[in-house]
Nucleic acid binder design. Structure first.
Length: 271
DNA sequence: AAATGCGTCAACCGCCCTGCG
DNA sequence: ACGCAGGGCGGTTGACGCATT
């Protein structure tokens, strides 16, 4: 038997929050800050369970939440991140700080999932473009998975594997299908780690230009500079050893990997 | 105008993880 | 080492509003 639900107590209110309840909760958090949700109902007099209060705050009342229509950019990001991370909505939401995981999850379930399914089913009939985009995306994901997983083994051949993936010449191999051997969750944690390392790696280069998030080439040009290849590899290895599993894949890197090579736009395809 | 269907999204449920005693 | 409780997260539900018949 599992634990009884936290909201199972008699007298605990369920359902939509009223404006009055919202005001009480917001003013309490304004004074005391978020956290220690256990004491919130008793301290505020709200007939809600602590979990409900936390959810209301994080999903609706918290400052900085953007509501309403998702922009094309946000939609692109969600599609790509979902492909990379799977249904890890909290992780995906960390790339869209103004959106909540609940919002993104709802948007995916109500808007994108259906459209992508439709797109997928129509792929066989017409669209070379649609198929081409999906194929590219899948290929890139598979290559990234393999290169990053290999690189995390921290030996020289595997470092080379990652560098190969990151190099401009990789683009010429982009239609090569590499079988997926790892789960998306394994890849996700690897990506988070590798991100910081890649970022630092670029910054440490004495002659490299500052990284431009918009430019996919500005990042990759650096490691094509052969005179620094040896030093770079050393730095790269040092960074690999100091991997922090809590770090996040930089948005610029993600976009560079996944968007720069796509001629067709997934958002357009969904319209 | 009423009935029905469908889409949307806030909120809930239940499982898992983590910290603490 | 163990159990408990709180918090986090993903999946699901159900109320609501709009569109269609």
């Amino acid at each position: 038997m599992g634990r009884p639900p936290c909201c199972g107590k008699i007298g605990v209110k369920k359902g939509p929050w009223t404006p009055e309840e919202d005001i009480i909760l917001v003013s309490y958090i304004h004074e005391n800050g978020p956290g220690n949700w256990r004491v919130v109902p008793s301290n505020t007099g709200l007939l809600r369970c602590s979990k409900s209060c936390r959810l209301r705050w994080t999903n609706y009342l918290r400052p900085g939440i953007k509501r309403g229509q998702f922009t094309d950019h946000e939609v692109k990001l969600i599609i790509h991140l979902q492909a990379l991370l799977g249904n890890r909505w909290a992780a995906i939401a960390s790339y869209l700080p103004e959106r909540t995981d609940n919002d993104i999850k709802n948007y995916w379930n109500t808007h994108l999932k259906k459209k992508l399914k439709k797109l997928h089913s129509s792929q066989g009939n017409d669209g070379f473009t649609k198929g081409q985009w999906e194929k590219k995306l899948q290929t890139d994901i598979n290559m990234a998975k393999k290169a990053l997983c290999d690189a995390l083994s921290i030996d020289q051949p595997n470092i080379n594997a990652l560098q190969t993936y990151l190099s401009p010449t990789h683009q010429k191999q982009k239609h090569q299908i590499i079988p997926t051997t790892s789960s998306s969750s394994v890849y996700a944690s690897s990506a988070e780690n590798i991100s910081r390392l890649l970022k630092n790696w670029v910054h440490k280069s004495p002659n490299s230009a500052p990284p431009k998030p918009e430019s996919h080439d500005s990042i990759f040009d650096f490691e094509s500079t052969t005179t620094e290849a040896s030093e770079s590899t050393t730095l790269f290895q040092e960074d690999l050893k100091s991997i922090n599993f809590q770090e996040q894949l930089p948005l610029s890197m993600l976009e560079s990997w996944l968007l720069a090579e796509s001629n067709s736009d997934p958002v357009d395809l969904l319209n």
